[in-house]
Nucleic acid binder design. Structure first.
Lengths: 211, 211
DNA sequence: AACAAAAGGGGTAAACACCCCCATTTTAAT
DNA sequence: ATTAAAATGGGGGTGTTTACCCCTTTTGTT
């Protein structure tokens, strides 16, 4: 009996190609593939559609990889999620692992590694490359001042990634310009940045804003 | 006799998967794959490594898809380049086509389309989806004020995508602050932007700067 | 010599960054 | 239940940086 795999990725060509790869492995076969997390969630209603492993992209429209993984962890904890993403920063990888992914494969993975990862996940329940481990360790040694941005601040940051002035941002957020400046000042402090350019770069690097 | 294909992409897993797909097509077989343009250029020194078609990613380290395509157009005009990229903006697609690519496949391509594209390129010499055509047409109707940025201005824009002040940028570029402001003013005019945030966004969207 | 870029400059008002402080509301601890 | 402590929204003032004018000198090309 082969283990069943589902591929969830909005890059159809990549999905289909991965399906081909997986099917070439001895112990694995693909059930189907989805273009986003919502499609997967819909599919899972039928018990025959429940796989052993989900190969999950992170950046997807509608329902992204992180949210989808959280959902699976809650409703289908028996499904192993292996994150498989093209190019992500460390923060995103961490979010994915925190959401419950059992492993993370980066873009420069070889197909042999993919097979190895699938096997190890079925045997041991997890798979971590040296790189992933290094990132995790690096994150631990790094200051744990997990910058906690509030909802309102995040909304402000998004607005700050435009050509609007702070006064205009205050208008669209129905707040006093002074409050906006207050947000800005405390955010600058938290993120150790000096000006709005730094803020924009932070927002982009942390997926608060996509240019 | 099958047509030969080479895959050039820094995403090894994707490359290997594409190789699998291509080999499953009747009329095509892959010769090898490369992780960047430089690798390809090196390979092509040997005549037996010259393929009929190159499936080329755009964003790659060392030698990117656009530069590589330009090189091929000059030195190996008989090789057909089919751009195959994950997610790009219209501008990049255009640059790729201008560099000499015979077609462009987007991320949501199905494998049947890939085969169709390969066939059509060998038969007609080009392949263009409706989407690509639409972009081209849209670009034509759009104002042709192709913003011509000078070398020095581009260098300045890159520096402007940091937390440096203009004075500091002037220092690192060995220019007077006033000259820098002059650059800025003329760029703002050309790009119809109002402040440095707009400049940063432009730079990112046009790959002058990668956050 | 003629002309066009490129580089540099002065001045001004708006926007921004960075201080200080205060009132109310929420949350947490006693 | 009471109180302390955050969190939230707002304000005053100041110096710096930006944005946007209009203008001069230097440099390079033909």
């Amino acid at each position: 009996m082969k283990f069943s795999v589902v591929v969830v990725d909005d890059h159809v060509l990549l999905s289909q190609a991965i399906v081909g790869l997986v099917d070439s492995f001895d112990k694995f076969k693909t059930l189907y593939f989805c273009k986003n997390g919502q499609e997967l969630v819909d599919k899972l209603i039928s018990p025959k559609n429940i796989p052993d492993i989900v190969l999950m992209d992170i950046n997807m429209p509608i329902l992204n990889g992180i949210e989808t993984t959280k959902y699976l962890k809650q409703h289908f904890p028996q499904i192993h999620v292996l994150a498989l993403s093209i190019e992500e920063n460390e923060n995103t990888i961490l979010k994915m692992l925190r959401a419950g992914a059992k492993g993370y494969l980066m873009k420069d993975t070889k197909k042999e590694i993919l097979q190895e990862a699938l096997l190890e996940i079925m045997e041991k329940g997890y798979y971590h490359t040296n790189t992933t481990t290094q990132i995790l360790v690096g994150q631990l040694t790094k200051k744990t001042d997990q910058v906690a941005l509030k909802e309102r601040e995040i909304e402000f940051i998004k607005q700050a990634c435009t050509e609007l002035t702070y006064k205009e941002i205050a208008d669209v957020m129905f707040l006093s310009p002074k409050t906006i400046e207050g947000y800005r000042d405390s955010i600058y402090e938290k993120l150790s940045i000096k000006n709005r350019i730094g803020l924009v770069l932070y927002a982009i690097r942390n997926n608060l804003f996509t240019p």
